[in-house]
């Protein structure tokens, strides 16, 4: 039971569908407070749906989602965000026609403590100095790497307990990939729990504490990141059709 109590986020026997297709089959997993946990898997393994389920963008047909000791299954997305989850969506999804600063402030949308928001803005800009130079620039005009940083900074502005990230390194140049990963570690060291969905297994496991491998809607493999990184079955989970049992 102690393990369950330490879990900040817990998915319990989730079954979800996309139209008539079942995406998750009794999916259970948990994210412990203070850790970086990654969810790996090939195309169409159900990673994105997992993200949507956590954020309340899609309701599972059965099963429960728990966050911070309370059940959040079926809550509207804004209510879930309010409870302390920040989101870095797939492909970043910035508000391209708004300035960098406005994007940051949108990240703090659920908060009303003006003084603290201003403080956090300083703190976040210290973490992402590049954004400070561009506060008045339209977000859509920045490079992909800078946009990814803004997306992370935006999520931090809500003072979340947990940040969920959907493919944070997708489409970035190797240089930016390194930088984004380093930043994820930094954010985590400051006490924010991270749950990231990644296609790039080696990268994600390189910084994570724990990993899950999703294959056709089920956990095929899980364990401490260091162990998973050396596990040959992970290759089968991606490349082969054979089940990694």
């Amino acid at each position: 039971m102690s393990a369950t109590e330490a879990a900040l986020l817990r998915l319990d026997r989730i079954n979800s569908f996309y139209g008539p297709v079942q995406v998750h089959f009794d999916l259970s997993m948990e994210v412990r407070a203070g850790q970086i946990v990654c969810l790996l898997g090939g195309n169409a393994s159900g990673k994105s749906t997992t993200m949507k389920t956590i954020l309340g963008l899609q309701r599972p047909r059965s099963g429960q989602v728990w966050f911070d000791g309370a059940e959040i299954t079926g809550l509207p997305t804004p209510a879930i965000i309010r409870r302390g989850i920040g989101s870095v969506p797939e492909a970043r999804r910035l508000f391209g026609a708004m300035t960098v600063r406005e994007n940051l402030l949108m990240g703090a949308y659920t908060r009303s403590d003006r003084a603290a928001i201003a403080q956090d803005e300083e703190r976040v800009l210290a973490l992402f100095p590049r954004l400070r130079e561009r506060l008045k620039q339209k977000a859509g005009t920045m490079s992909g790497g800078e946009q990814q940083m803004l997306a992370m900074a935006r999520a931090l502005m809500g003072r979340p307990k947990l940040i969920v990230m959907d493919e944070p390194t997708m489409g970035l140049s190797p240089l930016f990939v390194d930088r984004v990963l380093a930043l994820i570690e930094t954010i985590n060291r400051e006490g924010v729990t991270i749950f990231m969905v990644e296609q790039n297994a080696s990268l994600a496991l390189g910084i994570a504490h724990y990993g899950y491998v999703l294959q056709t809607g089920q956990i095929a493999l899980d364990g401490p990141a260091a162990a998973l990184l050396r596990d040959p079955r992970i290759r089968d989970a991606y490349l082969g059709g054979t089940t990694a049992a």
Binding site: P174, V177, S202, L203, L205, G206, P232, R235, Y238
Partner: peptide, 24 residues
Amino acid sequence: VRNDPAVIEAYLGHRETGGAQQEA
């Protein structure tokens, strides 16, 4: 193609694939 390191890297990721790859 199945055993091409570039392919494996594309699927599993660009970094630190060395260990996993040799065993896989």
